[in-house]
């Protein structure tokens, strides 16, 4: 009787397991085919030379040549420098601006919902469309230069070809599009700050600035840390806006590592080289994230 019961339970468990696997199967198969396989295949390809049009049999093992080449390739080094410039400008500025906007919207302001929506729309808009609009704004005869001309500027800036200016439209666009999402996260964090703490600080004679620095900033630091990590990763992967906005004249000035990966793979059909670059980018992002994780212990208050 006891044995029969155990057998029934085991049978039920087996059925449940099969059912679970069947439910998981579509996701697992697509995950395997579109994530796991490409990841391992690209790791393998990074040690090879391959143009996909010659077929799989033309894959040639080249050892670490792709990695060595990368660090001798001026374009890649330049792209890497640019990527770091974008990161150290876009991430802090966009976080600061988002926090200021969120702080203002957390107070009593007119048209709060409308303003919030206005800041959020760029985040949900198509980056290609936004980049195209920005490209139009910064054209040599675009609205921005026309305003500058009306203001009496005689030597109008060449936004996309001047090495000192070419990254600026891209940075502005990236900051602008990021504000909406970051603002929402900060708004949620600000609303979670206990009001008693502000009241206590006020009784102790803390000025509004001091309250912001000593109460608000520490208490929203987990959100800041989260945004810092995700935004850094996003900026390291900056692609569409740079692809659209950097004309052929400013490619070298504003290119990023992801753009170089794309160019190597789909422009030059150097899939081995592109894979090697992808893994180096992955390693850099991982390293930066680990440093951030390590550093958060000193300034994030949970």
């Amino acid at each position: 009787m006891q044995t029969k019961k155990i057998g029934t339970i085991n049978e039920q468990k087996r059925r449940d397991t099969i059912t679970a696997w069947l439910f998981l199967a579509p996701t697992l198969i697509s995950f395997g085919a579109f994530v796991v396989f490409p990841v391992f295949f690209s790791a393998f390809l990074s040690f090879t030379q391959w143009d996909f049009i010659s077929g799989i049999s033309s894959i040639k093992f080249v050892g670490i040549r792709n990695f060595v080449k990368m660090f001798q390739d001026e374009e890649v080094i330049n792209a890497l420098k640019n990527t770091f410039i974008y990161t150290v400008t876009i991430v802090p500025i966009s976080l600061c601006v988002s926090l200021v906007v969120a702080y203002m919207l957390n107070d009593k302001v007119h048209f709060k919902k409308t303003i919030r929506m206005m800041f959020f729309i760029p985040y949900i808009s198509n980056t290609v469309a936004l980049a195209t609009v920005f490209k139009g704004l910064f054209r040599s005869d675009g609205p921005i230069n026309m305003v500058l001309r009306d203001l009496g500027v005689s030597e109008l800036p060449q936004w996309f070809s001047d090495p000192n200016l070419a990254k600026l439209p891209i940075i502005i666009l990236a900051i602008w599009t990021g504000i909406g999402y970051q603002m929402l996260i900060y708004l949620a964090a600000l609303q979670d700050v206990p009001t008693e703490l502000y009241e206590a600080a006020e009784i102790d004679g803390a000025s509004p600035l001091k309250r912001f620095l000593k109460v608000t900033i520490p208490l929203i630091s987990p959100s800041t840390f989260y945004l810092l990590v995700v935004r850094t990763i996003a900026v390291f992967k900056l692609f569409s806006s740079v692809k659209i906005m950097s004309g052929s004249s400013s490619e070298r000035i504003s290119t990023t590592l992801v753009l170089e990966i794309y160019r190597a793979a789909f422009g030059e059909y150097e899939f081995g080289y592109a894979s090697a670059m992808s893994w180096v980018l992955f390693a850099i992002i991982l390293m930066v994230t680990l440093v951030q994780m390590w550093g958060q212990k000193k300034w994030v208050h949970y």
């Binding site: 395997g32 396989f37 391992f40 295949f41 393998f44 390809l45 090879t48 049999s57 894959i59």
Partner: peptide, 19 residues
């Protein structure tokens, strides 16, 4: 096991002679 299998298959596929 699944991950190793996928990796080995991808390597074998890539290294194999074209049929």
């Amino acid at each position: 096991m699944l991950l190793v299998l996928v990796m080995v298959l991808s390597l074998l596929t890539a290294c194999g002679e074209q049929t």
